[in-house]
């Protein structure tokens, strides 16, 4: 089981968190159709680190962004959701 450091609450068990989606799948409401299609239906899905949006559902309920390695589960960064999560 992973331990995720919530930027608001500190280190907490992964079972308090729910995975949402990757940062590259966030799409602006006025995005052109091809960009919306790419964001909605495709993923980079790397065998390595990626930026993911999780929610501290059973904690402070805030959305957060974590950078996690998809093989080792190593989390190298966590941050509060801000303007950088938007395209």
């Amino acid at each position: 089981m992973m331990q995720i450091t919530c930027p608001h609450c500190g280190p907490r068990s992964q079972s308090e968190f729910v995975y949402g989606r990757t940062v590259d799948s966030v799409v602006a409401l006025d995005a052109p159709a091809d960009q919306a299609m790419t964001a909605l239906f495709t993923r980079t899905n790397p065998r390595g680190p990626d930026d993911e949006i999780w929610r501290h559902t059973y904690g402070c309920r805030a959305w957060i962004v974590i950078t996690r390695h998809r093989v080792t589960n190593e989390i190298t960064a966590t941050r509060a959701v801000g303007s950088e999560a938007l395209p």
Binding site: M1, Q14, V18, Y19, T22, R43, E52, R70, V71, N73
Partner: peptide, 13 residues
């Protein structure tokens, strides 16, 4: 496990 992974090992929960 409802999050992306290539680990070939999962979470006990």
């Amino acid at each position: 496990d409802n999050w992306p992974s290539y680990a070939q090992r999962g979470d006990p929960s």
